[in-house]
Structure formats: C-alpha cells, structure tokens
Design a protein around this nucleic acid. Structure first.
Length: 556
DNA sequence: GGATGGTTGAATAG
DNA sequence: CTATTCAACCATCC
C-alpha cells in the first residue's frame, strides 16, 4: 500500500494568501503523525495559517527525584525520550511540508487557551481521546473554545471503532468479552474506508506574537543529568521509524499470514516474536487504520491466513476492546468503585513489591523479564503475563494496582486502557477468572528457552550457570555455583517465596474471595474486605504447612 | 438452571 | 507433538 502522503514536495508560500484569512490550530497529543490524520487534514483545509502545537506537561516530562526510576512523576526516562524523538520526527515532517511544530511548556489547557486568545484562531482541531487525563483537559479547552465562538473538530482516529458508538449499540454498557465486543462492533466500516488525501503542503505558521515557543527539547534540556551511562531502549520514537518498522513486518507476507499471538516466543529478544509496533500505536506515530488496511492487503494476496483473536488484525481488535471497556467503566483503573472488578483483599507488602520491581525475586525468569522492562521499556506479551501473574494472584498476592503503576511508568508503550485492562485480566479481577491456572516461574520460560539464553542476556550474573539450574539456581550444588561464579544468596538472591506453597496459598485466598464476592453480589464494603483479609491471615497461621516460606531476604 | 464459551496453564499419557 | 486430565472459575445465553 503506497504511503498516503508525500514528504518530497517543496514549499511555496503564496504571499497573497497571507494577507488575511482564517487560522487553525492543530493540537497534537497522541496522533503524532502526518499520515492518516483527520484532525490535521481538516485543520489545514481552507485555512491560511496553521498553528501545529504540542504542549509539554511538566508532570509528564520534568524530572521527579522522588520517583523510583529515572524520569518524571508519570513516566520513565525511556518513554520520555521516545516521545521527544517522536516530536523531533514530527517537526521534521512538518518542516518538509512548509510548517513546523510549536512547542510550549505548561499546564496544557491553560497554554492552549492562551494560544487561542493570542492568535485569533477560527478552528481548533485535535484527535478525540478517551483517556481520563484528556477527557478532563478537553472539557476545559472545549468550553473556552465554544464560548469564544471557535469551531472545534475532534475526530475519533486513534482506534478502529468509536468506543462511544459501541457502548451505545450495546445498550449503554461496554461489552465485557472479546466475542461480544466483536459481535456488537460488526464490520469496521470506518477503518476500511479509503484514507483520503495526500498532504503535499501545509498552510504556513501565522504570527506567533508574544507566546513563548521553543524547539523540541532534549532530555538534558528537560533537566536530566548523568544519563550517559543509562542503558536506553533499542526502540526509537517517531512516525518515520513506525512506518519503517511496519514495512519490515508487512514485507514478510508469510509471517503476517501465519501470525498467532499465543504461539509467540516470549524469550525471543534478538528478533522479537511480535511487531513491536505497540509504542508507535500508543503515541499515534502509526495510524491503527493504516496498519489495519496494510494487513488486509497482505491477507488478500495469500491463500490462507490466521484470524482474530490470534491474528495481527485480532491484536488491533483487542486494543479497541480495551479502549471501549475502559471508556465505559467508571474507576476502571482501580479496584474500589469499579463495577467489573472483583474485590480481593490483596496484601500491601512493600518488600515483596520492591523485590519484584527491582528484579530480585530470586526467580531468574521473572527477574530477567523485569530487567528487560527496565532497560527496554518493552517485553513480549506473554512475558508481561508471567510477571503480572507472579506479583498478584500467582505468588506474591500484591495488589494489581501496584504492578500497574510500575508498568505504566516503565513501558514505552504503556497505554492507560490496555495496561489497566491487562492487569485486571491477569490478576483474575475481571475478564478472566481461572485463578488455578498459574504461570509457573520455572517451566513456562523453560519450554521456550531451555538453555536460558534470555536469562543469561538480561541477568549476566547467571550467564555461566549450567542450563540444568538456570531457572532454579538455588538448587545448584555449591560447587556448581562456585564454578559459575554466582553464589545464591550473595551474587543473586534466594527466592523470596516458595512457588509451590505461595501459589497454593493464592488459590485458597482467591477461592474465598470469589465466594464472598458471589455471596454479596460484588458489593463488598471496606469492612467486608478487612474482615476477609483477617480471616485469610488467621487461616494461614493455623495451617503452617501451607504458609509460603519467606526465605532469607536478598543480598545486602 | 443447564449448557457453553472463554486469546495463550501444567502435568501426563499416548 | 497432541489430546486428556486436572479442578472447576465466571458470564452469557437459552
């Protein structure tokens, strides 16, 4: 499929057009792309001046020394850099079309309103966003715009479907299973419709006035120091990179046609088993509609291909599913007050949480995945399942909201709807309820990677451990540990819990919590939860055999 | 109320 | 490598 835009056309400004006329403002948030960007197209159509604006929210971008990893209050440094790279790329593409990106700093709605006042804008255009952060922001901006008589155009173009439409079609509530979602959604008619225009030039930027604009800052300019030795994610941000990556995936028609998500290898890291387009979809460097149409093109030209939910198109539908449920569910990102979330008395063990977060649970498969998260900001979907299950219902019984926070910060593709949806899923709090199916921190990784190459790469301290012991190094005889230059308890921690007993405990707790949820029809008060928590702890003390063995804590 | 389906578990038998 | 068993969940549909 040809690119629906061209970056090669030189710019000719027509001075006659500059004499007077209408100004538009395109406000970039996600949707950091030129191709298939309805808000950008509408903003540029019939306008003499176009102001392309991005506002840097300090909460999202500026260093927060109190955070548990390098980064801001809301984002780890890898995602911040990915965003900056995406902005640089966007600015470059805009320049090729005769425009440029205007970058501001501050509270976004205040900045926007000031711009609108200053520039006499007639049309304000921005991609509709279902995330609560933007929902709150957009109300303020829209309120001002309508009071000032400014036209607002805010199309849904981040997803294949409009979540609002699907919720309406389903009687006001979002469908809660994938199958019912697909049934209600029907054919993606908008996503199948032709991607209209080829943008060959854009209206020039109008007078800036007294507004303070800057270039896209570097991470250093944002105030990050001592970053030379930081191990950065291998994935670079931006639309150009997204389209290059898309092309590489699409070119392998056989691979696209045979793609089955659950069969992918989570331990593949030299060449990941998936497209790794998620960070580009998250920031809208890649249009989900364009991706969808490219996939349809491949399917047309092969004899047979896989189908949703496991196919690549299926992955896009899952994305829409989570966007829809998240949009239609109040308090989607928490347990309390969340209609679809099981009320479970998770523990509040900060030591276990820290061991998980800092890759020192003593289970190499789990710790290697957490190192990949820290360094790459990306792991395979099934690897995410393993560590999420381990933290919550599988072993540590820590609240899923805590794990969600860690993912939200460190993933370069972290997406509010999808991240929360998957944590609800993996913790058996919603969507999925088979809590006796627990990912083994030993055998699950072993079946893909018996030699432990993934572990050796991300946990080099274990690189010389024989493969017989690499998934459970505490069982290696001391002579073997010595030879591998890795003494368990000194160079690499002992397990924080015993998987066998901990997972049994988790199943027992979940069974009781489920029973109470059923009895009370999901309406558990804080008191009910507290009582259940106490009861579960008492039962645990009365059955010392089944208590998870807290072993000696980590290296000092 | 019973049948059915649910993206992706583990252990075991053939 | 595939099918069965394990133990048995929830939500939905009829």
């Amino acid at each position: 499929m040809p690119l629906p835009f061209s970056l090669s056309t030189p710019l000719y400004r027509n001075p006659l057009n500059m004499a007077s006329g209408s100004s538009s403002l395109i406000w970039f948030r996600k949707g950091l792309r030129i191709h298939d960007n309805p808000a950008l197209e509408y903003a540029s159509k019939g306008s003499n001046f176009l102001y392309p604006v991005f506002v840097i929210d300090p909460h999202y971008m500026e260093p927060d020394p109190k955070a548990f990893s390098l980064g801001s209050t809301r984002a780890g440094i890898n995602r911040i850099r990915f965003l900056l790279e995406s902005l640089v790329d966007l600015d470059l593409s805009l320049k090729k079309l005769g425009s440029r990106l205007l970058v501001f700093k501050g509270e976004p709605s205040q900045v926007l309103i000031r711009c609108l006042k200053e520039w006499d804008v007639k049309k304000l255009c921005f991609e509709y966003d279902t995330d609560p952060y933007y929902q709150a922001l957009d109300i303020k901006v829209k309120d001002y715009a309508s009071s000032a008589g400014i036209e607002v155009f805010s199309p849904v173009s981040h997803t294949l479907f409009n979540p609002q439409d699907i919720i309406q079609k389903n009687g006001g509530k979002p469908p809660l299973s994938y199958q019912s979602f697909v049934k209600v959604a029907g054919q993606p008619s908008w996503a199948s419709s032709p991607i209209s225009t080829t943008i060959s030039s854009l209206p020039c930027v109008g007078e800036i006035g007294s507004c303070e604009i800057s270039k896209v800052p570097t991470v250093e300019e944002l105030g990050y120091e001592d970053i030379e030795q930081y191990e950065w994610t291998p994935f670079r941000g931006g639309e150009s990179e997204a389209l290059k990556r898309l092309r590489e995936s699409i070119n392998n028609k056989e691979w696209v046609a045979n793609f089955e998500k659950p069969k992918g290898d989570p331990s593949a890291f030299v060449k990941p088993a998936t497209t790794v387009l998620s960070p580009y979809l998250k920031f809208g460097c890649l249009s989900s509609r364009y991706f969808y149409q490219c996939l349809q093109d491949v399917y047309k030209n092969v004899r047979k291909h896989t189908s949703p939910p496991v196919s690549l198109v299926g992955q896009l539908l899952w994305r829409d599913f989570f966007y829809t449920v998240a949009f239609g569910t109040p308090n989607f990102d928490q347990m309390r007050g969340n209609r679809i979330c099981k009320q479970i008395p998770w523990n509040d063990d900060n030591e276990l949480l820290a061991a998980w977060r800092e890759a020192r649970t003593g289970y190499p498969w789990i710790d290697a995945i957490m190192v990949q998260l820290r360094k790459w900001g990306w792991m395979h979907h099934l690897a995410r399942h393993c560590v999420a299950c381990f933290l919550t219902r599988g072993d540590l019984f820590v609240h899923w909201e805590k794990g969600r926070d860690v993912f939200e910060r460190l993933l370069i593709d972290s997406d509010w709807a999808i991240n929360n949806g998957n944590w609800l899923w993996l913790s058996c709090s919603s969507f999925f309820y088979q809590y006796n199916r627990i990912y083994s921190p030993l055998s699950f990784g072993k079946k893909y990677d018996p030699n432990g190459n993934y572990i050796r790469h991300f946990l080099p301290v274990l690189k010389d451990m024989p493969k017989e012991y690499i998934y459970e190094p505490w069982t290696a005889p001391l002579s073997v540990q010595t030879k591998a230059k890795c003494i368990i308890g000194r160079d690499y921690p002992k397990p924080v819990i015993s998987h066998d007993s901990a997972s049994k405990e988790c199943k027992r707790k979940l069974a009781e919590a489920y029973a109470l949820n059923q009895k009370l029809n999901g309406q558990l008060s804080e008191e009910d939860l507290g009582n259940l928590k106490r009861k579960l702890e008492q039962d645990q003390d009365q059955e010392p055999k089944s208590r998870p063995q807290r072993q000696q804590k980590l290296m000092t």
